[in-house]
């Protein structure tokens, strides 16, 4: 089948979204399912079909989500209702909107706050944790173990004081 000429195609918009926490490294497919569930449960099937959502790019910190032009506001609202993925807390926050993926990828390079250091082993009392260090003194700490792994969001000052 021949592709439609550009003037007959639907206009699209691309939403750049930031994923927190960035050590979660979600797959694009999992992201798609989470966002689709959020859009469908908030706006219903009819509007979700009109939004024509698709995840077109994803790395550990950012993802780019495509939608039909004019629906980016609804998509951004639905993104803010995403709360968990695979029983882990996650937030997907809309960051910027553009008409091209290329512009958003340039934006990603500007916004990226450096690589995550770690995980490094950290001992608090008798318990052992994995610590992920971020720019701006942020440290995400996950308890090592198989069940009931505690997750803490701290700063370097908090760790020094422990």
């Amino acid at each position: 089948m021949r592709p439609r000429p550009p003037t007959m195609r639907d206009k699209k918009r691309y939403v750049l979204a930031k994923i927190t926490p960035s050590w979660l490294c979600p797959e694009t497919k999992s992201l798609y399912h989470v966002v689709l569930e959020a859009v469908t449960s908030l706006w219903g099937d009819a509007i979700a079909a009109g939004i024509q959502m698709a995840v077109v790019y994803g790395d550990r910190e950012f993802c780019i989500i495509r939608c039909r032009r004019g629906c980016e506001g609804r998509l951004a609202t639905a993104l803010s209702t995403v709360s968990c993925m695979n029983e882990m807390g996650i937030s997907i926050r809309s960051y910027a909107v553009s008409g091209t993926i290329h512009a958003l990828k340039r934006r990603i390079e500007k916004c990226r706050k450096g690589p995550v250091h770690g995980p490094e082993e950290l001992k608090i009392g008798e318990r052992t944790f994995e610590a992920y260090y971020f720019p701006g003194q942020k440290v995400d700490v996950i308890e090592k173990g198989f069940k009931s792994r505690e997750l803490l969001f701290l700063t370097e000052t908090d760790i020094e004081e422990m």
Binding site: P21, A76, T77, S80, S83, G89, I90, S91, R93, F153
Partner: peptide, 18 residues
């Protein structure tokens, strides 16, 4: 109760519009 649940001003405006 967590960083993950903290919303930005823009997100709060979007949710308030609902």
């Amino acid at each position: 109760r967590s960083v993950v649940e903290l919303k930005s001003v823009r997100e709060i405006l979007d949710l308030a519009s609902l």
